[in-house]
Nucleic acid binder design. Sequence first.
DNA 1: GTGCTTGTGTCTTATACAAGACCATGCAAG
DNA 2: CTTGCATGGTCTTGTATAAGACACAAGCAC
Lengths: 261, 261
Amino acid sequence: MTARPRRRAAKGLAAAPRPSPLVAVRRAPLYAQAEEMLAQRIAEGLWQPGAMLPPEPMLAEVLGVSPGTLRKAMAALERRRLIERRQGRGTFVAAETSERALFHFFRIVDLEGRKHAPTSYVLDCRTAPAAAEDAAALALAEGAALHQVRRGRAIAGSPCIVERIALPAWLFPGFALPVLREMTDELYVLYQRDFGITVARAEERLSAIAARGPDALLLGVAEGTPLIEIDRTAWDLAGRRVERRVTRLNTAAHRYLSALD
Amino acid sequence: MTARPRRRAAKGLAAAPRPSPLVAVRRAPLYAQAEEMLAQRIAEGLWQPGAMLPPEPMLAEVLGVSPGTLRKAMAALERRRLIERRQGRGTFVAAETSERALFHFFRIVDLEGRKHAPTSYVLDCRTAPAAAEDAAALALAEGAALHQVRRGRAIAGSPCIVERIALPAWLFPGFALPVLREMTDELYVLYQRDFGITVARAEERLSAIAARGPDALLLGVAEGTPLIEIDRTAWDLAGRRVERRVTRLNTAAHRYLSALD
DNA sequence: GTGCTTGTGTCTTATACAAGACCATGCAAG
DNA sequence: CTTGCATGGTCTTGTATAAGACACAAGCAC
Protein backbone atom coordinates (compact mmCIF):
# COMPACT_ATOMS: atom_id res chain seq x y z
CA MET A 1 0.00 0.00 0.00
CA THR A 2 1.94 3.00 -1.22
CA ALA A 3 -0.80 5.32 -2.38
CA ARG A 4 -2.09 7.93 0.05
CA PRO A 5 -5.78 8.42 -0.51
CA ARG A 6 -6.02 11.40 1.80
CA ARG A 7 -4.53 14.82 1.45
CA ARG A 8 -4.80 17.76 3.79
CA ALA A 9 -4.64 21.33 2.67
CA ALA A 10 -1.82 23.17 4.37
CA LYS A 11 -3.37 25.64 6.75
CA GLY A 12 -2.08 28.25 9.12
CA LEU A 13 -3.94 29.31 12.21
CA ALA A 14 -4.29 32.83 10.94
CA ALA A 15 -5.60 31.64 7.58
CA ALA A 16 -3.31 34.25 6.11
CA PRO A 17 -2.43 34.05 2.44
CA ARG A 18 0.87 32.34 1.86
CA PRO A 19 3.58 35.01 1.94
CA SER A 20 5.40 35.64 -1.26
CA PRO A 21 8.75 33.87 -1.31
CA LEU A 22 10.42 37.20 -1.93
CA VAL A 23 9.60 38.63 1.46
CA ALA A 24 11.45 36.62 4.01
CA VAL A 25 8.71 36.72 6.63
CA ARG A 26 8.57 32.96 7.17
CA ARG A 27 5.27 32.12 8.80
CA ALA A 28 6.02 30.81 12.27
CA PRO A 29 5.53 27.08 12.70
CA LEU A 30 2.07 25.96 13.70
CA TYR A 31 3.07 24.88 17.17
CA ALA A 32 4.53 28.33 17.81
CA GLN A 33 1.35 29.96 16.58
CA ALA A 34 -0.69 27.75 18.87
CA GLU A 35 1.60 28.56 21.76
CA GLU A 36 1.29 32.29 21.24
CA MET A 37 -2.46 32.09 20.83
CA LEU A 38 -2.81 30.26 24.12
CA ALA A 39 -0.34 32.55 25.86
CA GLN A 40 -2.34 35.53 24.72
CA ARG A 41 -5.59 34.12 26.01
CA ILE A 42 -3.98 33.55 29.37
CA ALA A 43 -2.47 37.03 29.43
CA GLU A 44 -5.87 38.49 28.58
CA GLY A 45 -7.38 36.66 31.51
CA LEU A 46 -9.74 34.54 29.45
CA TRP A 47 -8.70 31.76 31.79
CA GLN A 48 -8.07 33.01 35.30
CA PRO A 49 -5.06 31.89 37.34
CA GLY A 50 -5.80 28.51 38.86
CA ALA A 51 -8.55 27.76 36.35
CA MET A 52 -8.55 24.50 34.47
CA LEU A 53 -8.01 24.64 30.74
CA PRO A 54 -10.15 22.59 28.37
CA PRO A 55 -8.77 19.11 27.76
CA GLU A 56 -6.10 18.79 25.13
CA PRO A 57 -8.20 17.14 22.43
CA MET A 58 -10.72 19.93 22.66
CA LEU A 59 -8.06 22.65 22.56
CA ALA A 60 -6.49 20.97 19.57
CA GLU A 61 -9.80 21.01 17.77
CA VAL A 62 -10.58 24.62 18.68
CA LEU A 63 -7.19 25.77 17.43
CA GLY A 64 -7.41 23.53 14.40
CA VAL A 65 -4.17 21.67 15.02
CA SER A 66 -3.37 18.05 15.65
CA PRO A 67 -3.02 16.77 19.21
CA GLY A 68 0.71 16.33 18.77
CA THR A 69 1.21 19.91 17.71
CA LEU A 70 -0.97 21.13 20.55
CA ARG A 71 1.09 19.13 23.00
CA LYS A 72 4.26 20.73 21.73
CA ALA A 73 2.76 24.15 22.36
CA MET A 74 1.60 23.10 25.82
CA ALA A 75 5.03 21.80 26.71
CA ALA A 76 6.49 25.17 25.77
CA LEU A 77 3.90 27.01 27.87
CA GLU A 78 4.73 24.78 30.79
CA ARG A 79 8.42 25.60 30.41
CA ARG A 80 7.47 29.27 30.45
CA ARG A 81 5.61 28.56 33.70
CA LEU A 82 2.31 29.86 32.32
CA ILE A 83 0.52 26.58 32.91
CA GLU A 84 0.84 23.53 35.12
CA ARG A 85 -0.07 20.12 33.82
CA ARG A 86 -0.88 17.17 35.99
CA GLN A 87 -1.47 13.76 34.58
CA GLY A 88 -4.95 12.57 35.34
CA ARG A 89 -6.15 15.95 36.59
CA GLY A 90 -5.84 18.44 33.81
CA THR A 91 -4.01 21.59 32.87
CA PHE A 92 -4.26 24.71 34.99
CA VAL A 93 -3.27 28.31 34.54
CA ALA A 94 -0.33 28.86 36.86
CA ALA A 95 -1.33 30.70 40.02
CA GLU A 96 1.30 32.57 42.00
CA THR A 97 2.01 31.24 45.44
CA SER A 98 4.58 32.40 47.94
CA GLU A 99 6.58 29.26 47.30
CA ARG A 100 6.58 29.78 43.55
CA ALA A 101 7.46 33.45 43.85
CA LEU A 102 10.16 32.65 46.34
CA PHE A 103 11.58 29.97 44.12
CA HIS A 104 11.68 32.07 40.97
CA PHE A 105 12.08 35.65 42.08
CA PHE A 106 14.00 35.46 45.30
CA ARG A 107 17.72 34.90 45.07
CA ILE A 108 18.92 35.54 48.58
CA VAL A 109 20.32 32.63 50.55
CA ASP A 110 22.23 32.13 53.77
CA LEU A 111 25.92 31.28 53.84
CA GLU A 112 25.16 27.59 53.39
CA GLY A 113 23.15 28.31 50.27
CA ARG A 114 19.76 27.62 51.87
CA LYS A 115 16.78 29.76 51.03
CA HIS A 116 14.52 30.95 53.83
CA ALA A 117 11.22 32.79 53.48
CA PRO A 118 11.70 36.37 54.66
CA THR A 119 9.22 38.35 56.70
CA SER A 120 8.44 41.96 55.88
CA TYR A 121 7.32 45.02 57.78
CA VAL A 122 6.11 48.03 55.83
CA LEU A 123 7.59 51.33 56.96
CA ASP A 124 5.75 53.60 54.61
CA CYS A 125 3.16 53.30 51.86
CA ARG A 126 1.91 56.26 49.88
CA THR A 127 1.05 57.46 46.40
CA ALA A 128 3.21 60.19 44.95
CA PRO A 129 4.47 61.53 41.62
CA ALA A 130 7.26 59.57 40.01
CA ALA A 131 10.80 60.80 40.37
CA ALA A 132 12.84 60.82 37.18
CA GLU A 133 14.62 57.58 37.97
CA ASP A 134 11.50 55.58 38.76
CA ALA A 135 9.70 57.01 35.76
CA ALA A 136 12.55 55.93 33.51
CA ALA A 137 12.67 52.44 34.98
CA LEU A 138 8.93 51.99 34.48
CA ALA A 139 8.83 53.77 31.10
CA LEU A 140 6.38 56.34 32.43
CA ALA A 141 6.27 60.10 32.20
CA GLU A 142 7.98 61.95 35.01
CA GLY A 143 5.42 62.86 37.63
CA ALA A 144 3.07 59.97 36.87
CA ALA A 145 1.33 58.65 39.98
CA LEU A 146 3.20 55.81 41.69
CA HIS A 147 2.39 53.75 44.72
CA GLN A 148 5.58 53.79 46.75
CA VAL A 149 6.43 51.41 49.52
CA ARG A 150 9.37 51.26 51.85
CA ARG A 151 9.84 48.16 53.89
CA GLY A 152 12.34 46.13 55.83
CA ARG A 153 12.72 42.40 55.59
CA ALA A 154 14.19 39.88 57.96
CA ILE A 155 15.44 36.39 57.32
CA ALA A 156 15.33 33.97 60.23
CA GLY A 157 14.61 36.88 62.55
CA SER A 158 17.54 39.10 61.61
CA PRO A 159 16.85 42.24 59.53
CA CYS A 160 19.07 42.23 56.49
CA ILE A 161 17.07 43.90 53.72
CA VAL A 162 15.64 47.33 53.14
CA GLU A 163 13.55 47.82 50.06
CA ARG A 164 11.82 50.52 48.08
CA ILE A 165 9.03 49.48 45.73
CA ALA A 166 7.31 51.59 43.07
CA LEU A 167 4.16 50.60 41.19
CA PRO A 168 2.30 52.47 38.44
CA ALA A 169 -0.87 53.66 40.19
CA TRP A 170 -3.10 53.08 37.17
CA LEU A 171 -2.28 49.38 37.20
CA PHE A 172 -2.92 48.98 40.92
CA PRO A 173 -6.02 51.05 41.74
CA GLY A 174 -6.52 51.41 45.47
CA PHE A 175 -3.26 49.72 46.35
CA ALA A 176 -2.33 50.00 50.01
CA LEU A 177 -0.42 47.96 52.54
CA PRO A 178 -0.88 47.90 56.31
CA VAL A 179 2.02 49.71 57.88
CA LEU A 180 4.14 48.02 60.55
CA ARG A 181 2.29 44.71 60.38
CA GLU A 182 4.45 41.66 59.79
CA MET A 183 3.80 40.03 56.42
CA THR A 184 5.00 36.72 55.14
CA ASP A 185 3.26 36.45 51.78
CA GLU A 186 5.14 37.54 48.74
CA LEU A 187 3.81 40.70 47.12
CA TYR A 188 3.54 39.01 43.74
CA VAL A 189 0.79 36.77 45.10
CA LEU A 190 -1.12 39.89 46.09
CA TYR A 191 -0.54 41.58 42.73
CA GLN A 192 -2.13 38.63 40.99
CA ARG A 193 -4.97 38.00 43.40
CA ASP A 194 -6.04 41.60 43.97
CA PHE A 195 -5.11 43.28 40.72
CA GLY A 196 -4.95 40.49 38.18
CA ILE A 197 -1.35 41.28 37.41
CA THR A 198 0.96 38.32 36.96
CA VAL A 199 4.66 39.03 37.09
CA ALA A 200 6.21 36.95 34.36
CA ARG A 201 9.75 38.16 34.15
CA ALA A 202 12.20 40.42 35.91
CA GLU A 203 15.66 41.79 35.49
CA GLU A 204 18.02 42.73 38.28
CA ARG A 205 21.09 44.93 38.15
CA LEU A 206 23.41 44.72 41.09
CA SER A 207 25.91 47.20 42.38
CA ALA A 208 27.80 47.70 45.60
CA ILE A 209 27.05 50.72 47.74
CA ALA A 210 27.93 51.97 51.21
CA ALA A 211 25.26 51.93 53.91
CA ARG A 212 24.04 55.42 54.79
CA GLY A 213 21.74 57.05 57.34
CA PRO A 214 18.41 55.32 57.94
CA ASP A 215 19.42 52.22 55.97
CA ALA A 216 22.44 51.67 58.20
CA LEU A 217 20.21 52.13 61.20
CA LEU A 218 17.58 49.70 60.03
CA LEU A 219 20.13 47.08 59.12
CA GLY A 220 22.08 47.63 62.29
CA VAL A 221 25.40 48.21 60.55
CA ALA A 222 28.00 50.93 60.71
CA GLU A 223 27.86 53.81 58.27
CA GLY A 224 29.86 52.91 55.19
CA THR A 225 29.36 49.15 55.45
CA PRO A 226 29.27 47.69 51.91
CA LEU A 227 25.82 46.54 50.81
CA ILE A 228 24.51 45.04 47.61
CA GLU A 229 21.92 47.15 45.87
CA ILE A 230 19.57 45.21 43.61
CA ASP A 231 17.65 47.27 41.09
CA ARG A 232 14.81 45.16 39.75
CA THR A 233 12.37 45.84 36.96
CA ALA A 234 9.46 43.43 36.59
CA TRP A 235 7.23 42.79 33.59
CA ASP A 236 3.80 41.18 33.50
CA LEU A 237 2.48 38.58 31.06
CA ALA A 238 1.58 41.24 28.52
CA GLY A 239 5.09 42.68 28.65
CA ARG A 240 4.18 45.81 30.60
CA ARG A 241 6.58 47.14 33.23
CA VAL A 242 4.67 46.73 36.45
CA GLU A 243 7.18 47.19 39.25
CA ARG A 244 10.46 48.75 40.12
CA ARG A 245 12.09 47.53 43.28
CA VAL A 246 15.37 48.66 44.79
CA THR A 247 16.63 46.26 47.41
CA ARG A 248 19.58 46.82 49.70
CA LEU A 249 21.08 43.70 51.17
CA ASN A 250 23.47 43.29 54.06
CA THR A 251 25.74 40.46 52.98
CA ALA A 252 27.20 39.76 56.40
CA ALA A 253 25.16 36.58 56.70
CA HIS A 254 23.57 36.25 53.26
CA ARG A 255 24.48 35.94 49.64
CA TYR A 256 22.85 36.72 46.34
CA LEU A 257 22.76 33.41 44.50
CA SER A 258 22.83 33.18 40.74
CA ALA A 259 22.81 29.98 38.73
CA LEU A 260 24.41 29.89 35.30
CA ASP A 261 23.31 27.02 33.11
CA MET B 1 -16.27 -3.56 23.33
CA THR B 2 -14.69 -3.94 26.70
CA ALA B 3 -12.16 -6.67 26.05
CA ARG B 4 -8.62 -5.60 25.26
CA PRO B 5 -7.37 -7.97 22.62
CA ARG B 6 -3.89 -6.64 22.13
CA ARG B 7 -1.06 -6.25 24.52
CA ARG B 8 2.40 -4.85 23.86
CA ALA B 9 5.50 -6.02 25.60
CA ALA B 10 6.99 -3.10 27.49
CA LYS B 11 10.57 -2.56 26.51
CA GLY B 12 13.21 -0.33 27.99
CA LEU B 13 16.57 0.54 26.54
CA ALA B 14 18.30 -1.48 29.20
CA ALA B 15 16.04 -4.47 28.60
CA ALA B 16 15.78 -4.69 32.38
CA PRO B 17 13.16 -6.95 33.87
CA ARG B 18 10.02 -5.11 34.85
CA PRO B 19 10.42 -3.87 38.41
CA SER B 20 8.09 -5.34 40.95
CA PRO B 21 5.19 -2.99 41.66
CA LEU B 22 6.16 -2.97 45.31
CA VAL B 23 9.43 -1.15 44.77
CA ALA B 24 8.69 2.32 43.54
CA VAL B 25 11.65 2.58 41.17
CA ARG B 26 9.71 3.72 38.12
CA ARG B 27 11.79 3.19 35.02
CA ALA B 28 12.51 6.56 33.42
CA PRO B 29 10.71 7.22 30.13
CA LEU B 30 12.44 6.10 26.98
CA TYR B 31 13.14 9.59 25.72
CA ALA B 32 14.85 10.44 29.00
CA GLN B 33 16.94 7.30 28.80
CA ALA B 34 17.93 8.19 25.26
CA GLU B 35 18.79 11.73 26.35
CA GLU B 36 20.99 10.56 29.18
CA MET B 37 22.67 7.97 27.02
CA LEU B 38 23.58 10.61 24.44
CA ALA B 39 24.60 13.11 27.11
CA GLN B 40 26.93 10.55 28.59
CA ARG B 41 28.55 9.78 25.28
CA ILE B 42 29.18 13.47 24.77
CA ALA B 43 30.55 13.88 28.30
CA GLU B 44 32.85 10.92 27.73
CA GLY B 45 34.17 12.57 24.60
CA LEU B 46 33.03 9.84 22.25
CA TRP B 47 32.04 12.72 20.02
CA GLN B 48 34.43 15.65 20.31
CA PRO B 49 33.22 19.24 20.56
CA GLY B 50 32.42 20.51 17.10
CA ALA B 51 32.04 17.01 15.70
CA MET B 52 28.97 16.06 13.74
CA LEU B 53 26.68 13.48 15.24
CA PRO B 54 25.27 10.66 13.15
CA PRO B 55 22.02 11.55 11.39
CA GLU B 56 18.90 11.22 13.46
CA PRO B 57 17.49 8.11 11.79
CA MET B 58 20.74 6.30 12.44
CA LEU B 59 20.90 7.41 16.06
CA ALA B 60 17.33 6.31 16.54
CA GLU B 61 18.16 2.89 15.19
CA VAL B 62 21.32 2.54 17.27
CA LEU B 63 19.47 3.45 20.45
CA GLY B 64 16.52 1.32 19.48
CA VAL B 65 13.96 4.07 19.72
CA SER B 66 11.64 5.62 17.19
CA PRO B 67 12.64 8.81 15.38
CA GLY B 68 10.05 10.80 17.29
CA THR B 69 11.41 9.70 20.64
CA LEU B 70 14.93 10.42 19.51
CA ARG B 71 13.91 13.89 18.44
CA LYS B 72 12.45 14.58 21.84
CA ALA B 73 15.75 13.62 23.43
CA MET B 74 17.68 15.76 20.95
CA ALA B 75 15.47 18.76 21.67
CA ALA B 76 16.23 18.39 25.36
CA LEU B 77 19.95 18.15 24.68
CA GLU B 78 19.75 21.28 22.59
CA ARG B 79 18.03 23.12 25.43
CA ARG B 80 20.85 21.97 27.69
CA ARG B 81 23.25 23.47 25.14
CA LEU B 82 25.09 20.18 24.65
CA ILE B 83 24.38 20.07 20.94
CA GLU B 84 23.56 22.47 18.13
CA ARG B 85 21.22 21.42 15.36
CA ARG B 86 21.08 23.07 11.98
CA GLN B 87 18.51 22.14 9.43
CA GLY B 88 20.11 20.79 6.30
CA ARG B 89 23.57 20.52 7.86
CA GLY B 90 23.37 18.17 10.76
CA THR B 91 23.77 18.06 14.51
CA PHE B 92 27.02 19.05 16.17
CA VAL B 93 28.46 18.75 19.64
CA ALA B 94 28.49 22.26 21.04
CA ALA B 95 31.94 23.80 20.99
CA GLU B 96 32.75 26.62 23.35
CA THR B 97 33.50 29.94 21.73
CA SER B 98 34.21 33.27 23.36
CA GLU B 99 30.81 34.48 22.26
CA ARG B 100 29.02 31.51 23.75
CA ALA B 101 30.95 31.69 26.99
CA LEU B 102 30.37 35.41 27.19
CA PHE B 103 26.69 34.99 26.59
CA HIS B 104 26.18 32.28 29.16
CA PHE B 105 28.78 32.82 31.83
CA PHE B 106 29.43 36.53 31.82
CA ARG B 107 26.92 38.72 33.56
CA ILE B 108 28.64 42.07 33.72
CA VAL B 109 27.19 44.94 31.71
CA ASP B 110 27.67 48.66 31.47
CA LEU B 111 25.16 51.13 32.88
CA GLU B 112 23.06 50.92 29.76
CA GLY B 113 22.84 47.15 30.06
CA ARG B 114 25.17 46.41 27.16
CA LYS B 115 27.63 43.57 27.35
CA HIS B 116 31.21 44.14 26.18
CA ALA B 117 33.94 41.55 25.83
CA PRO B 118 36.54 42.18 28.52
CA THR B 119 40.29 41.93 28.07
CA SER B 120 42.46 40.22 30.63
CA TYR B 121 46.04 40.50 31.83
CA VAL B 122 47.44 37.77 34.01
CA LEU B 123 49.31 39.02 37.06
CA ASP B 124 50.38 35.72 38.45
CA CYS B 125 50.08 32.05 37.55
CA ARG B 126 51.46 29.27 39.67
CA THR B 127 50.70 25.87 41.13
CA ALA B 128 50.37 25.62 44.89
CA PRO B 129 48.61 23.60 47.60
CA ALA B 130 44.97 24.39 48.13
CA ALA B 131 43.97 26.64 51.00
CA ALA B 132 41.05 25.43 53.08
CA GLU B 133 38.53 27.67 51.36
CA ASP B 134 39.48 26.67 47.82
CA ALA B 135 39.63 23.02 48.78
CA ALA B 136 36.13 23.20 50.21
CA ALA B 137 34.77 24.99 47.16
CA LEU B 138 36.27 22.38 44.84
CA ALA B 139 35.51 19.43 47.12
CA LEU B 140 39.18 18.52 47.33
CA ALA B 141 41.42 17.65 50.23
CA GLU B 142 43.21 20.57 51.81
CA GLY B 143 46.65 20.88 50.29
CA ALA B 144 45.73 19.31 46.96
CA ALA B 145 47.63 20.87 44.07
CA LEU B 146 45.83 23.80 42.45
CA HIS B 147 46.72 25.97 39.53
CA GLN B 148 46.14 29.48 40.77
CA VAL B 149 45.78 32.55 38.61
CA ARG B 150 45.40 36.19 39.49
CA ARG B 151 44.39 38.56 36.78
CA GLY B 152 42.85 41.91 36.08
CA ARG B 153 40.22 42.56 33.49
CA ALA B 154 39.23 45.70 31.70
CA ILE B 155 36.04 46.53 29.90
CA ALA B 156 36.25 49.11 27.13
CA GLY B 157 39.72 50.00 28.30
CA SER B 158 38.97 50.72 31.95
CA PRO B 159 40.10 48.18 34.57
CA CYS B 160 37.14 47.19 36.71
CA ILE B 161 37.71 43.56 37.64
CA VAL B 162 40.28 41.65 39.66
CA GLU B 163 39.97 37.92 39.72
CA ARG B 164 41.46 34.89 41.40
CA ILE B 165 41.04 31.51 39.70
CA ALA B 166 41.76 28.08 41.13
CA LEU B 167 41.82 24.84 39.11
CA PRO B 168 42.44 21.28 40.29
CA ALA B 169 45.89 20.50 38.92
CA TRP B 170 45.08 16.88 38.07
CA LEU B 171 42.35 18.00 35.66
CA PHE B 172 44.57 20.56 33.91
CA PRO B 173 47.99 18.94 33.53
CA GLY B 174 50.59 21.47 32.45
CA PHE B 175 48.27 24.42 32.72
CA ALA B 176 50.00 27.77 32.43
CA LEU B 177 49.13 31.24 31.22
CA PRO B 178 51.48 33.87 29.80
CA VAL B 179 51.87 36.59 32.40
CA LEU B 180 51.18 40.22 31.51
CA ARG B 181 50.08 39.48 27.97
CA GLU B 182 46.70 40.85 27.00
CA MET B 183 44.14 38.11 26.35
CA THR B 184 40.70 38.40 24.85
CA ASP B 185 39.59 34.77 24.64
CA GLU B 186 37.51 33.39 27.41
CA LEU B 187 39.27 30.81 29.58
CA TYR B 188 36.46 28.31 29.09
CA VAL B 189 37.37 28.03 25.42
CA LEU B 190 40.88 27.13 26.45
CA TYR B 191 39.71 24.61 29.05
CA GLN B 192 37.79 22.77 26.37
CA ARG B 193 40.33 23.00 23.58
CA ASP B 194 43.45 22.20 25.58
CA PHE B 195 42.14 19.98 28.35
CA GLY B 196 38.89 18.56 27.01
CA ILE B 197 36.97 20.06 29.90
CA THR B 198 33.63 21.60 29.05
CA VAL B 199 32.12 23.85 31.66
CA ALA B 200 28.44 23.04 31.73
CA ARG B 201 27.12 24.86 34.73
CA ALA B 202 28.17 27.35 37.34
CA GLU B 203 26.87 28.96 40.47
CA GLU B 204 27.72 32.40 41.74
CA ARG B 205 27.31 33.83 45.21
CA LEU B 206 27.58 37.57 45.52
CA SER B 207 28.45 39.67 48.48
CA ALA B 208 29.54 43.27 49.01
CA ILE B 209 33.03 43.97 50.29
CA ALA B 210 35.29 46.97 50.75
CA ALA B 211 38.25 47.43 48.42
CA ARG B 212 41.57 46.79 50.17
CA GLY B 213 45.27 47.07 49.39
CA PRO B 214 46.36 45.79 46.00
CA ASP B 215 42.80 45.38 44.75
CA ALA B 216 42.06 49.04 45.39
CA LEU B 217 45.27 49.92 43.62
CA LEU B 218 44.57 47.79 40.59
CA LEU B 219 41.04 49.09 40.28
CA GLY B 220 42.11 52.65 40.91
CA VAL B 221 39.65 53.25 43.73
CA ALA B 222 40.00 54.52 47.28
CA GLU B 223 40.45 52.08 50.13
CA GLY B 224 37.06 51.06 51.44
CA THR B 225 35.19 51.58 48.18
CA PRO B 226 32.34 49.04 48.01
CA LEU B 227 32.87 46.26 45.48
CA ILE B 228 30.87 43.22 44.50
CA GLU B 229 32.60 39.94 45.17
CA ILE B 230 31.42 37.07 42.99
CA ASP B 231 32.32 33.61 44.23
CA ARG B 232 31.82 31.16 41.38
CA THR B 233 32.01 27.39 41.32
CA ALA B 234 31.90 25.71 37.91
CA TRP B 235 31.02 22.12 37.02
CA ASP B 236 31.89 20.21 33.87
CA LEU B 237 29.65 17.93 31.83
CA ALA B 238 30.33 15.00 34.10
CA GLY B 239 29.36 17.01 37.16
CA ARG B 240 32.88 17.46 38.51
CA ARG B 241 33.86 20.74 40.13
CA VAL B 242 36.49 22.14 37.79
CA GLU B 243 36.98 25.76 38.75
CA ARG B 244 36.62 28.20 41.56
CA ARG B 245 36.76 31.84 40.65
CA VAL B 246 36.51 34.84 42.93
CA THR B 247 35.82 38.03 41.04
CA ARG B 248 35.84 41.52 42.48
CA LEU B 249 33.93 44.08 40.50
CA ASN B 250 34.01 47.84 40.71
CA THR B 251 30.41 48.88 40.12
CA ALA B 252 31.12 52.52 39.43
CA ALA B 253 30.46 52.02 35.73
CA HIS B 254 29.18 48.45 35.56
CA ARG B 255 26.42 46.24 36.89
CA TYR B 256 25.95 42.56 37.52
CA LEU B 257 22.91 41.63 35.45
CA SER B 258 20.61 38.81 36.40
CA ALA B 259 17.51 37.75 34.49
CA LEU B 260 14.66 36.11 36.33
CA ASP B 261 12.26 34.21 34.14
C1' DG C 1 27.39 30.25 -12.44
C1' DT C 2 22.86 27.21 -12.86
C1' DG C 3 20.33 23.62 -11.82
C1' DC C 4 19.90 18.95 -10.10
C1' DT C 5 20.46 15.58 -6.59
C1' DT C 6 21.18 13.93 -2.21
C1' DG C 7 21.47 14.13 2.64
C1' DT C 8 20.16 16.40 6.52
C1' DG C 9 16.95 18.26 10.15
C1' DT C 10 11.83 20.26 10.68
C1' DC C 11 6.93 20.29 10.89
C1' DT C 12 2.60 18.15 11.06
C1' DT C 13 -0.50 14.58 11.47
C1' DA C 14 -2.32 10.23 13.30
C1' DT C 15 -2.94 6.45 16.49
C1' DA C 16 -2.42 3.46 20.41
C1' DC C 17 -1.69 2.55 24.90
C1' DA C 18 0.00 3.71 29.84
C1' DA C 19 -0.76 5.89 34.04
C1' DG C 20 -2.75 9.14 37.42
C1' DA C 21 -6.90 11.13 39.60
C1' DC C 22 -11.45 11.32 40.65
C1' DC C 23 -16.09 9.76 41.44
C1' DA C 24 -20.18 7.03 41.61
C1' DT C 25 -21.70 2.78 42.84
C1' DG C 26 -22.57 -0.70 45.80
C1' DC C 27 -21.59 -3.89 49.28
C1' DA C 28 -20.31 -4.98 54.01
C1' DA C 29 -19.65 -3.85 58.80
C1' DG C 30 -21.36 -1.45 62.54
C1' DC D 1 -29.94 3.06 58.68
C1' DT D 2 -25.32 4.85 58.47
C1' DT D 3 -20.56 4.65 57.79
C1' DG D 4 -16.53 3.02 55.56
C1' DC D 5 -14.22 1.41 51.85
C1' DA D 6 -13.17 -1.30 47.80
C1' DT D 7 -14.07 -1.45 42.95
C1' DG D 8 -14.43 -0.20 38.47
C1' DG D 9 -15.43 3.31 35.09
C1' DT D 10 -14.08 7.38 32.94
C1' DC D 11 -11.65 11.48 32.16
C1' DT D 12 -7.31 13.45 32.08
C1' DT D 13 -2.35 13.94 30.63
C1' DG D 14 1.97 11.19 29.42
C1' DT D 15 4.66 8.10 26.39
C1' DA D 16 5.83 5.88 22.14
C1' DT D 17 5.43 4.90 17.37
C1' DA D 18 5.02 5.79 12.41
C1' DA D 19 4.83 8.24 8.16
C1' DG D 20 4.93 11.85 4.85
C1' DA D 21 5.74 16.55 3.16
C1' DC D 22 8.89 20.11 3.54
C1' DA D 23 13.03 23.33 3.99
C1' DC D 24 17.75 23.97 3.90
C1' DA D 25 22.63 23.08 2.71
C1' DA D 26 26.18 21.26 0.13
C1' DG D 27 28.27 19.04 -3.66
C1' DC D 28 28.33 17.79 -8.43
C1' DA D 29 27.47 17.95 -13.38
C1' DC D 30 27.01 20.78 -16.92
